[in-house]
Structure formats: C-alpha cells, structure tokens
Amino acid sequence: MAKGLEISECQRFGLATVMLRKNANHAAVGAALQVAAPADPTWVASNELTMIGTGPGMWLALTETPSQHWSATLAERLAGVASVSDQSGGYVIFRIAGSSARTLLQRGAFIDLTPPAFGAGSVATTVIAHIGVIIWQIDDVPTFHVALFRSFAGSFREWLDTASVNLTF
C-alpha cells in the first residue's frame, strides 16, 4: 500500500436510516436523540451516536457500540418523529486515512474533496467506480469513512487495490 495510506474496515457498528415523519422537524429528532440532526450534508456526534446527513430529513444514525436492540430502541425514541430502518447488516464501512487518502478518493469521486469544499464534518453521498458510497470526513489527518452496500464490498476492494497502487505516479 502507498505511503501515507491506511485502509481498514470497521467491524462492529449499528447503522439505521432515519427519515423524518410528515409534520415533524429536525429539532424533534435532535431532542429525541440528544444529538443534533444536521439539516445539511454534515455529521454530528454525541453520546455514542453519530447522525450523518444523507438527504433532507434523512440521516444515517451510527453507533460503534450497538446493543442487540439498538435499532428497536432508536425507533422507540423516535416514535412519531421519524421512521427507522435498521441497516446494520446492509453496509460495510471502510476507514481510509493518511496523507494520501484524499488523493485516492479524489480519483474515484467526482466531487471536490479538498478544503474548504470538504473537510472534517462533511458528508457526501456519491459514486465511486459505479458503486454508491457515503463518504464522511472524520478528522484532518485526514481520515475518511466510506460506507457502501455490503454486496459491493468485493468490487470496491478491487478498485481500492488498483487505485492505491498507482497513487505515487
């Protein structure tokens, strides 16, 4: 692997799609979860819960310490405010970090990943190598998390392998 690049896969997490009910608002989601639900493509974390903005009134709720009843509990807390669909089994999440991480992702994603267009706290739902991805930047290392549907994981790894070999050229 190229210098300045670390790629790993997150092993354990809970993930759910949260969609705002009609006549409910962001604030109610935030109040129910005690974490602000961002109105734009950014993410906010607190209390072991990360709310990742993926659309208007739509988020991925993420926890790295899921209990077995995590999504059911989430649904209960959001009753009347938002619908919850468990996605914990449906995605894989890659952690791509290091000084070359941005270069690598930029070769795949046709969105501007350089600051100030994109930085820690930013989220983008887009496409890499014909595979739908949700990218969110964790820190300024930089570290990116890239979530994609589980079925594509093999093809995504193949793209990562190819693209990361020629990072230095």
Partner: peptide, 8 residues
C-alpha cells in the same frame, strides 16, 4: 417514508 433495505 420509504427506504431500500435490500442489502439489510
């Protein structure tokens, strides 16, 4: 509200 859970 509708969301795909094909992969879930």
């Amino acid at each position: 509200q509708a969301t795909s859970v094909t992969e879930q």
